[in-house]
């Protein structure tokens, strides 16, 4: 899962002539595809943007555990239960890698967590949609992970070393996520009439929210331009969205499912599918906290955090006692 709508702190790209010598040297390194490492000098804006983007990416992984975790106890076979559990566990791992990457920029994981719980930081809008049937678990893997992978693969080349390395590990591990989702969709679409209906319903509900995952059109955005100059964003939102549609439509056809878009049509001249934009008012509503599951998702994370405080404190207290006893014995 990934970051969406990261508002940069800058005011557009700084022209080269306004840069200090240090900033120019930094931009030259980025332009030369050198990796920026934690102890290197970096502009404040770069650091702040990265903290927001990586933090949001990490939060998305953690909140992203919930819609799928919702079905672990109801998975229909032992094998499916294990696959889903392993997948949701991976999301936790990916959150962990990303928090660690953010921590190299001088923030703590606990602070980031509190920023998530207080609503100061966001996570991807997609996780505020419910998973209502087992086919939704297929659709999440196929569409949501598909969209995420599309965004994450280029981020393996992002300019910040720890982020790029985390993405390499994440992309490697995620390679099975989309495939297991599509595998579920095949079973459902080719199954009984009821299963086929569930599969179509899942596609109907997840199609537009998946398109929203790439964020609104970035043609106007000054934020995107700066992020791209810093190579913490590699492709445009629109470019990725088009790529996703082009890739996904034939997959839906193979399943015998109908993409819920009357305007969907192959455009011979462009060599791409034409398609309808999602309802961007709905998108902004969800970001503001009014999605179907925002309250439940944050509530679940808050409970985990607050109910777990005594555990974190207890184990730390024990570690300190043990260390003190060891020192006393020496």
């Amino acid at each position: 899962m990934y970051a969406q709508m990261v508002k940069s702190t800058g005011k557009g790209i700084k022209p080269r002539e306004e840069m200090s010598a240090q900033e120019r040297a930094f931009q030259d390194r980025v332009d030369a595809d050198e990796r920026i490492e934690p102890r290197d000098w970096m502009p404040d804006g770069y650091r702040q943007n990265l903290i927001r983007q990586i933090g949001q990416h990490a939060h998305s992984e953690i909140v992203g555990q919930l819609p799928e975790g919702n079905w672990i106890t109801r998975a229909p076979t032992l094998q499916r239960k294990m696959i889903l559990l392993a997948k949701v566990q991976d999301e936790a791992g990916h959150g962990l890698y990303l928090y660690a990457a953010a921590e190299t920029l001088g923030v703590s994981r606990d602070d980031l967590t509190e920023d998530l719980l207080s609503g100061r930081m966001k996570y991807s809008s997609i996780f505020n949609y419910p998973t209502l049937t087992w086919a939704d678990i297929g659709a999440v893997g196929w569409l949501v992970d598909g969209a995420a992978i599309m965004n994450q693969v280029p981020l393996q080349r992002t300019s910040y070393g720890p982020y790029a390395r985390a993405m390499v590990r994440i992309c490697k591990e995620e390679s099975f996520h989309q495939r297991q989702g599509y595998d579920i969709m095949m079973k459902m679409a080719q199954g009984t009439e009821a299963q086929h209906r569930m599969a179509q319903d899942a596609l109907n509900r997840f199609w537009y929210p998946s398109l929203m995952m790439f964020g609104p059109s970035d043609t106007e955005s000054v934020h995107s331009a700066q992020s791209m100059a810093w190579k913490i964003k590699i492709d445009t939102n629109d470019g990725l969205r088009q790529k996703f549609v082009d890739q996904t439509v034939p997959q839906a056809e193979y399943l015998g499912l109908t993409v819920p878009d009357e305007n969907l049509k192959w455009n011979e001249k462009r060599g791409h599918y034409d398609f309808s934009q999602p309802d961007w008012d709905e998108f902004f509503d969800v970001l503001r906290g009014n999605g179907p599951c925002n309250t439940d998702r944050l509530g679940a994370r808050r409970n985990a955090w607050e109910d777990g405080a005594w555990v974190r404190e207890g184990l730390l207290a024990h570690a300190r006692k043990k260390a003190a006893r060891k020192t006393a014995a020496e």
Binding site: R35, E37, R39, T104, G106, D110
Partner: peptide
């Protein structure tokens, strides 16, 4: 690669202590 340990925290001034209960 300018840091021996890619995960190492940036150098702090020693003033910022870790949160009391963060592992």
């Amino acid at each position: 690669m300018s840091s021996v340990n890619p995960g190492a925290l940036p150098e702090t001034d020693g003033k910022s202590t870790p949160r009391r209960n963060e592992w």
